[in-house]
Amino acid sequence: MSVESTTGGEIVHAIWDILRIHKDGSVVRLMGCEVAPASIDPQTGVQSKDVVISPETAISVRLYLPKSALNPSTHKLKLPLLVYFHGGGFCIATASFPPYHNFLNSLVAAANIVAISVDYRRAPEHPLPTAFEDSWEAVKWVISAGDEWVKNLADLERLFFAGDSAGGNIAYRMSIRVGLEMEWLSSSGAKLVGIVLVHPLFGGEESIGSELEVNAAVKSDYDNLWRIVWPSVKSLDDPIINPSMDPNIARMGCERVLVCVAEKDGLRDRGWCFYDAVKRSVWKGTVEIVKTAGEDHVFHLFNPTGDNALAFIKMLVSFFNEEIRN
């Protein structure tokens, strides 16, 4: 078990076996604290580095380059650019958490893309909407080509957002922000092609689907999580939590959306609800949903060599490279 900090005193809030909040306000994280350093991955040849984009708030990103981009003789065209938002219920994990680092090494190598993983500030020390504000700062930094890797090697006209769990929620919110500020994005020469929401963390006041019976306790836990990471929230039907209530859902500033759900995941019905809401809206793009049988929440992070995880990577590779094939 990895513990980020220790403290004594009465526990006033507990989120599963991942986080404890004590009466004195101190926080203990029981998961997601391990750190994988940026490096050249020996298995894939992918190179990564960390960049602080805001010294005032300590927002940082981890950039990834595929092996092909490191060789000028083989690198001729700029590569698709992925901005990735990690999960962890808005309260644990980082861009350097080994499962995320290893996953992005594998994805960048397989898809031959440039990737940027965002390290936003976490609740409860920094309650929502901080994670969204930090993520938008990172998006603006990326689009302004704030790093030589992005400027020289990434194609801003083939920009993608993706994230899992809480990161899937963030990826959706960032696509809305892009849609609301499309004039600025267009003037920058960037184009958000698509977003991928992997087992997205959405919710709502009313129970739906399996939440009514099988996953009733799971929904209760997630409802509690939302109130801890966003104490000022007035309703679980706030559009940030429940996108089916979002009046701006048709303003997503992308052309394609891929929603990924897992059969055993307690959030699977929320993914389907989002998919249905997009289909009902007047949004002009294409939305697809894919279910992985027999798997649970973010299975690809913790069983990365399993058949389903490998198939998942292959699916993402196809999504990011569709324009190239066409």
Rank of each mutant, 00 (worst) to 15 (best):
H297W: 08
R251L: 15
A166T: 03
T305S: 08
G285A: 14
L19T: 02
P72M: 11
L225A: 05
P129G: 06
V83D: 03
L153V: 06
V108P: 01
L159K: 04
D221I: 09
I241R: 03
S144V: 04
S2T: 11
I249H: 00
N105R: 02
G203Q: 06
V108K: 01
W226Q: 09
S106K: 12
E263R: 07
F202V: 12
D41F: 02
Q47V: 01
D269W: 06
G168P: 09
I21C: 06
V28H: 02
N242M: 12
D269K: 08
W16F: 08
L258F: 06
V51P: 01
G8W: 03
R20P: 02
T286S: 13
K284Q: 13
I21N: 01
E125C: 07
S144G: 11
A277E: 08
L185F: 11
S188E: 07
D17S: 13
D238R: 07
G88R: 06
I289F: 01
S232L: 15
T44N: 00
N105S: 04
I116C: 15
I92C: 07
V35G: 00
A250C: 14
A277P: 11
W184I: 12
T7W: 02
D147M: 09
P304Q: 05
E181A: 13
D238M: 09
L310M: 14
V61A: 03
M315K: 14
V35D: 02
E213S: 14
G146I: 10
Y222Q: 11
T286Q: 13
W272H: 11
I241F: 04
R158V: 04
E157H: 11
G163N: 07
E148K: 15
D41N: 06
V52E: 15
T286L: 15
W184Q: 14
D269V: 08
S117L: 08
D307Y: 02
G253E: 09
P98Y: 03
L63T: 04
E255I: 04
R62G: 00
I11K: 04
V35E: 05
S188W: 01
G87L: 11
R20V: 00
I21A: 02
E295L: 13
A131F: 06
W226L: 13
K291S: 15
H297E: 09
W136D: 07
W230K: 10
S135P: 11
F312K: 06
A309G: 12
V282S: 14
K314V: 02
I249S: 03
D307H: 04
N248Y: 12
G271T: 06
G189Q: 08
S135E: 07
F103T: 02
H13R: 15
P239K: 07
A145L: 09
K264V: 02
A36N: 05
E263C: 10
S235V: 10
T6L: 14
V83G: 03
I313S: 00
M1H: 04
S165R: 06
N169P: 09
A36M: 14
A69L: 10
E157T: 15
P129D: 07
I59P: 01
S318G: 12
A69G: 05
G266Y: 03
W141A: 11
H126T: 12
L65P: 00
E10P: 00
W184H: 09
S54E: 12
A36Q: 13
I11R: 05
P231T: 03
N112Q: 14
F202K: 04
V290P: 01
D307K: 13
S220W: 01
K49V: 00
S54C: 14
I313C: 01
M252T: 07
